Simulated scan of single mutants.
Amino acid sequence: MVVALFLMILGFEAAYTLGSQGIVGGPQAVGWRQAAIQTYAYNADIQRWMLANGIYPFEHVIRYITYPFVHASFTHAAFAGVILLAMGKFVGEVFRQWAVAAVFAGSAIFGALAHGMVAHEQPWLMGAYPGVYGLIGSFTYLMWLRLGELGERQVRAFSLIGFLMGLQLLFALLFGGDSMWIADVAGFCFGFALSFFVAPGGWTKIRAKLQQRG
């Protein structure tokens, strides 16, 4: 599943990059990336319009699933792909394939929803990062469990997300920030929370605890 997601990101990005350089697709290929952004990237203004009118056209709803595969640049896609492979390797060794897909897709959707509720100045959202941060949330969950089994401080499991958020803050201070971090944080939180249910034996443990309290 992780390899499939990576290949999808790589395939689309290869088409946009090669097209922008005139290597494939002819003259019209120069605008492929911009066309993809307009058609498949997520837009908070569109979400607010749908909620206000109670109308949900498929062409806009599908953006919640397609925006992770549209990136602003080759570097943007490359970093997302590298982190996806790294986190996906750890999570995929424990989670089933459908659970990995659920974490990635669910985190991307939840991240977009959260972004749309807050972002006003920068409505566009694109890239795999919210889904990737969801996998970081699952990785954190596994580390959290492991540290608990070892009797160590479980708060250490959140060191990675703390480091990444600190790095984003640093870049924001140096180069100016945007509202995309909202989707990343929301994706992380969703991935961490969903892991309690989709991890092997996770739902069984939760149901047992609820029965004990009942």
Rank of each mutant, 00 (worst) to 15 (best):
G26I: 11
Q28W: 08
Q28H: 10
A29V: 06
A29Q: 11
A29Y: 07
A29C: 08
V30F: 06
G31M: 10
G31N: 13
W32E: 12
Q34A: 11
Q34Y: 05
A35Y: 00
A35S: 14
A36D: 15
A36T: 09
A36K: 03
Q38H: 02
Q38G: 09
T39V: 13
Y40F: 14
N43G: 05
A44E: 08
A44N: 04
I46D: 12
I46F: 03
Q47R: 03
Q47L: 11
Q47D: 13
Q47A: 07
R48N: 14
W49P: 01
W49K: 11
M50R: 13
L51W: 10
A52Q: 14
N53D: 03
I55E: 13
I55G: 04
I55H: 12
I55R: 14
Y56W: 15
Y56P: 12
P57C: 06
F58P: 02
F58S: 02
F58Q: 12
E59N: 10
E59D: 13
H60Y: 15
H60K: 13
H60W: 12
V61Q: 10
V61F: 04
I62N: 06
I62S: 10
I62Y: 04
R63G: 12
R63N: 14
Y64T: 10
I65W: 07
I65G: 04
I65K: 01
T66G: 08
Y67H: 14
Y67C: 07
P68V: 08
P68F: 00
P68C: 04
V70E: 04
V70M: 03
V70H: 02
A72F: 05
S73P: 00
S73M: 00
S73L: 02
F74D: 08
T75P: 02
A77I: 09
A77R: 06
A77Q: 07
A78Y: 06
A80H: 10
A80V: 00
G81T: 15
G81R: 07
I83S: 09
L84D: 00
L84G: 00
L85N: 11
L85F: 04
A86W: 09
M87H: 00
M87Y: 08
G88L: 05
K89W: 15
K89D: 13
K89M: 11
F90S: 04
V91I: 10
G92L: 02
G92T: 05
G92C: 05
G92H: 08
E93R: 08
